[in-house]
């Protein structure tokens, strides 16, 4: 296991958000974090990356406690794509290059530019590489943010609703690319997702959060009508169309 989260607790003031969340992800594995709005999914990602400081619990990378790592050392191993990236007058190229920041001592070197260009090609951003990101569509911005995280060459990739502003084609495209790249390099992915069908299509493992605890966690077999209705409060059928598993609300 490359990433192991153990007994994670977090609360804002006196309101608990996470009350003891734990799971593990193997290299090359894609885990979808699912659950209602406010179930603590984004908070969980931020705690893993220490953007928020958890009250209790441990995050282990290769069995090493991340509390001992500095921010930069952590950023060399864990890439994070927030729900929303603020736009600015930076070009797409420079934004992706920024993903190299944890690896840069004084200035970007040859390898930093090589990695940046490889990722730009992988995500098909070449045609907009010199546009500033305040001129991008929502989907292009999201792809740029993912590219930046991939440029970090992380061993764990945290995605917070990576496809929320993408159209159908781009959803499949981007998740397919993330899937392929992370499998190739043995990167573990933890992605907060709202679309159960997309999750079923791309994820290997599923972690349902409900009221700050793990309700169910495991392979596709845990995505049952019973679990989904318990977590979301909606009756569903789980079926398959052309061998693709789908969840249909009833």
């Amino acid at each position: 296991m490359i990433l192991r989260v153990d007994g994670m607790r977090f609360g804002y003031a006196s309101t608990p958000v996470l009350s003891g969340v734990g799971f593990a992800v193997a290299p090359g594995e894609f885990m979808a974090v699912l659950g209602n709005n406010g179930a603590g999914k984004s908070t969980l990602l931020k705690c893993i990356n220490r953007i928020l400081r958890p009250n209790d619990g441990a995050v282990l990378l290769d069995d090493a406690d991340t509390k001992r790592l500095g921010r930069v050392e952590l950023a060399r191993q864990v890439g994070y794509v927030p729900q929303r990236m603020e736009s600015s007058r930076m070009t797409v190229y420079d934004t992706v290059l920024l993903g190299r920041r944890p690896h840069i001592e004084w200035d970007a070197g040859r390898r930093d530019y090589e990695v940046t260009e490889r990722v730009i090609d992988q995500l098909g951003l070449g045609h907009i590489a010199l546009r500033t990101i305040d001129e991008l569509s929502g989907g292009e911005l999201q792809k740029t943010a993912i590219a930046r995280a991939l440029a970090q060459e992380p061993r764990v990739l945290l995605l917070d609703e990576p496809t929320s502003s993408l159209d159908l084609r781009n959803q499949l495209d981007v998740l397919g690319t993330v899937r392929r790249v992370t499998r190739e390099h043995g990167v573990a992915v933890v992605a907060v997702m709202h679309d159960l069908n997309l999750a079923l299509r791309f994820a290997d493992r599923f972690c349902f959060l409900s009221e700050g605890v793990v309700h169910a966690c495991g392979g596709p077999e845990v995505v049952t009508p019973h679990v989904v209705s318990a977590v979301y409060g909606v009756d569903v059928a789980v079926t398959s169309v052309n061998d693709v598993a789908v969840v249909v609300p009833l």
């Binding site: 921010r71 950023a75 060399r76 864990v78 994070y80 930076m90 920024l98 944890p102 970090q152």
Partner: peptide
């Protein structure tokens, strides 16, 4: 420039 969450994710204090 990309927001404080992005910056923290990139290892910036």
């Amino acid at each position: 420039e990309a927001g404080s969450e992005s910056a923290r994710g990139l290892g910036v204090n």
